[in-house]
Write a protein that binds this DNA or RNA. Structure first.
Lengths: 173, 173
DNA sequence: ATCCTGGGTTCAGTGAATGAACTGACGCGC
DNA sequence: GCGCGTCAGTTCATTCACTGAACCCAGGAT
């Protein structure tokens, strides 16, 4: 968002939340993090956003405690970005917003569908399993390609997501 | 958001949703609409955003079918903005994001608290009533001032929200 | 020694947000 | 009829964030 990313006059938790995750691209970065994306280059290729913006967003999310930057290799030095416990609490909002968009704005052909990995049932619009009758945490969710998925994309993330995948687990490599 | 508000490469319901409600100020406009704000001037005074941005956001939300513009007076000509059924489906996201912000970013003093109007119990973090054990629709929610509310604001919306108020019902005038 | 890869930073150009000023339709008091 | 006030915008110069391309640097690989 341009010119002042915060909302100083709003005495409201929503305004505080939007100051952290309300900027352009940020929610999509988080979505990818839930999908298992951890590395700068993977975010970059999948989201097709300017590198400078990605670097800024990742740093802001780390700063806010939503992501954690962790070194997974010293030679060469490589870092990965992981959702913290605070960040993982955002899953219901990310999921429900995506479902809302699918229902009303996507011609109702879902791009990806989400199943409860332990029982196989497809999640309802609130993110609950109709069989188990409870909200399913992201660690128990399997993402599968849906009928609307774009088959032409060749970036590593799009390719990896063409096969079923458990949320929060890394995307190969 | 600056320079392209959409995410053309993202084959995802979340991206579609963010193109509609992901711009700066838009979620706060929706929050106010749930609180009962309906008129241009009330949004303007409560959100303290530039008039041009408000006009743009309201028009975009009407265009997307999230809000409905309805004439409530012919002389003088006056319109009000109401949430449509599609827009009202966004309540869980607005509520849960606000709760997440309260928990992690607001020093944990909530600005406003939400109760189930039929039984009086305070809603949990998912927007459900602990007593009735179900998700509460916004029409059954009463908003009350919380301990962190700013007592210095004098705009009509802030003043009206200092007394308990049912969501989606108009704020006096 | 040179190339390649991953993960950035720098920088000019663009376009959206800002805030103040202006417009226009109408109601009201005189 | 005339001025004043209100509501809902539109216009416009300025400011600042996003964009995309170029550049940088560390550490293998060749």
């Amino acid at each position: 968002m341009a010119l002042g990313k915060d909302y100083p006059g709003q005495d409201c938790g929503l305004a505080r939340a939007l100051e952290v995750i309300g900027e352009r691209w940020t929610m999509l970065v988080l979505r990818d993090a839930f999908y298992g994306v951890r590395r700068f280059g993977d975010f970059l290729a999948h989201l097709e956003l300017p590198r400078a913006v990605l670097a800024d967003r990742l740093a802001a999310l780390v700063d806010a405690g939503v992501l954690e930057k962790r070194r997974y290799s010293d030679a060469p030095p490589r870092d990965e970005y992981l959702l913290t416990a605070v960040g993982r609490e955002l899953w219901p909002m990310v999921y429900m917003l995506g479902q809302w968009g699918n229902r009303h704005l996507s011609g109702s052909r879902p791009f990806r569908v989400f199943h409860h990995s332990t029982c196989g049932r497809r999640l309802d619009r609130t993110g609950s399993c109709p069989a188990c009758d409870r909200a399913v945490p992201p660690t128990e969710i399997e993402i599968r390609p849906g009928p609307g998925a774009d088959p032409t994309r060749t970036d590593p993330v799009s390719v990896a997501l063409r096969t079923p995948h458990r949320l929060l687990t890394p995307l190969s490599t």
